[in-house]
Design a protein around this nucleic acid. Structure first.
Lengths: 352, 352
DNA sequence: TTAAATGTGCTCAAACTGAGCATATATAAC
DNA sequence: GTTATATATGCTCAGTTTGAGCACATTTAA
């Protein structure tokens, strides 16, 4: 029945409505608190990075997390302004481009010790910025490559070998395992999901499905957060660092959502230029796109693409420090926003 | 600075962090309540419809709204299961496909009389279904054409004349008006937004920008909800019904988000079949796509598209009641999900 | 001077797309 | 019955887009 794999996870049914709906003040609702989380992305030295803040270790020993804080309707005019406040306070960064990603609300998704207190619903945001754009010394977080948390997503040097050596064997084992002890194994469904998410057996790798892949690894109990949230599920195995560094709460999930969103979005919105300096060479632009997307692109076709799409215009200057023939400098052509409904770096996705 | 018009609205800055972040229980946060809202979409007689529930009139006299209710973390395991509960209770409908749309949290977006009580953050969901799929008599809402709320979105008979006759003149007037009394008029920016959103002056109409258009009309004070939320802004003018029926709270905004999402999504996910019966003719499929997207499609090319994409397969039967040569019946080919990363009805968007 | 690296222009075939012609087979009107 | 009309379906064909590569330019480093 379910078609969209992205929402499949949450499509459980059968809950009952408990109380009738009314506009009178409701008193028996559990307390809810809203957490605002920012996945702040930049590209530094051709490496895609996210801003990480470190705090006390959580239940699983993770210290890395995204900047976040609660939404306070008394002081935050909007959700987004609340987010900006927290980022400013925690990382000393003044956010530029930001967009909402998704709202995560499942209980048990980020079990904290004790798990008392209000239920926390996390609203994830994606922000794009340039490193070193803020006043120097103001930043308090550290920039870390996002591939540290998702090593299987780094296709810049071809298919990452960690897939063949570790990830796929463990997933295959999970797919073949009976779902409940005694129950008949249903390897078909799981195997198909692995196949589509990770592009095995002739299926194509879709670089946008970052969240699907993370969710699958979580479900298979392979990422450390899964062991944290469901200790009973832990099986002695490969050290969990093999499946990328863990993060606190559900921050890795939010980061996965963010990566998928940037990868999709640069194809139809010129957000790539949020990551670029004012002037750049076409090859620098290409390197940045590759850092985000993974696979490397055909150089001549890439320049044809961005030029014919009207995304850039030459500044008239050249940069000689390129190690070869001097490269013309370009800048983002803002007028493109007034000319086309969906301007972006329309590199072909791996879509048949 | 801002690039994505869709998030432009909320990109205000300058808020200050009020209190330092900590993991101790926070006590001085204003109360927050989460509302779950469902835009349930179907296609009935080639008309795209949404499930509307009627209640007491709100401040502006609107009685139409989407099924909704508060999220209760004590009883709802997930946000989505909470939504399903409310829809079940309020409309007697068992939801099939559902996906999260967006979380709206701005204060003042749906001013209620008095405006006391907790701050409500709305999480909007999109659901797709077939009419008459539920047990007969169980449904308590009414299905209403979504073009009743967004008449300017109906391009099935060409460019809707309401655009030339009413919408654009009023928007032009707004764009030319000085933003504050006495301040210099800045018609450029507003005029450009109108141009891109509504495809005037040579710009192309992008059928996916439903929310942008609604937001623009809201900002211009032309839709009735704007007058409700900011009464000082009301100017005696065209009856507000000209700009579509109003809805309670921010439900029309959520519906706009939903329409934009379906229009985008059917192009890369086979969700269109959530709206189709098991067996259908290709022309019926085309009519459904047209109901969603607006403009009419080239018939032969449409069938070439869906057949060559492997989205459908013939059932072997024909339907004679078509008023012409009998049409072959088709069904959705589920295997396509295992073959392609992003299968969908890839009709060309109005994207250059 | 040469090798190596990058930058830039151009070609060309394959695939895709938009548009239309032509024909098949029903129902409804006369 | 015959005809008008409506839908169904196959096919063509030119224009565009895309993937891949050749060729040459201009720099730095050895």
């Amino acid at each position: 029945m379910t078609i969209d794999m992205q929402t499949q996870r949450a499509m459980t049914r059968g809950d009952e409505a408990i109380r009738s709906h009314s506009h009178a003040p409701r008193t028996d609702l559990g307390r809810v608190e809203i957490g605002l989380n920012a996945a702040i992305v930049a590209v530094s030295n051709n490496e895609p990075v996210a801003l990480i803040v470190r705090e006390e270790p959580d239940a699983a020993g993770a210290t890395d997390g995204l900047p976040f804080g609660p939404f306070n309707p008394k002081t935050h005019r909007t959700l987004e302004s609340g987010l900006r406040s927290w980022v400013q306070e925690q990382a000393g960064l003044d956010l530029g481009y930001a967009e909402q990603l998704y709202t995560f609300g499942d209980r048990g998704r980020h079990a904290e010790a004790g798990d008392t207190g209000p239920h926390v619903v996390s609203i994830g945001y994606l922000a794009l910025t340039r490193v070193g754009e803020s006043q120097p010394g103001v930043e308090r977080g550290t920039w870390r490559s996002w591939y540290q948390f998702f090593p299987w997503e780094d296709w810049r040097k071809g298919r990452p070998q960690i897939l063949e050596s570790v990830v796929l064997p463990r997933l295959k084992e999970w797919a073949d395992r009976p779902q409940r002890p005694g129950a008949p194994a249903r390897p078909i469904q799981r195997a198909d999901r692995v196949r589509m998410c990770f592009g095995t057996d002739g299926a194509l790798w879709d670089e946008e499905r970052v969240l699907d892949r993370y969710e699958l690894l979580y479900e298979a109990g392979l990422v450390t957060e899964a062991m944290r949230d469901r200790p009973e599920l832990t099986i002695p195995s490969t050290p969990s660092e093999t499946f990328g560094s863990g993060m606190r709460f559900d921050h890795r999930r939010i980061l996965a959502t963010a990566i998928g969103r940037v990868r999709a979005k640069i194809k139809y919105r010129p957000v790539i230029f949020e990551l670029m300096p004012d002037d750049f060479t076409l090859f620098e632009l290409q390197r940045t796109v590759e850092a985000i997307l993974g696979p490397h692109l055909h150089k001549q076709n890439f320049r044809r693409l961005v030029e014919s799409a009207g995304l850039v215009e030459p500044t008239g200057e050249v940069r000689t420090r390129t190690g070869g023939r001097p490269a013309k400098l370009y800048r983002f052509r803002r007028e493109v926003l007034l000319e086309r409904p969906a301007p972006g770096v329309r590199v072909k996705a791996n879509r048949v």
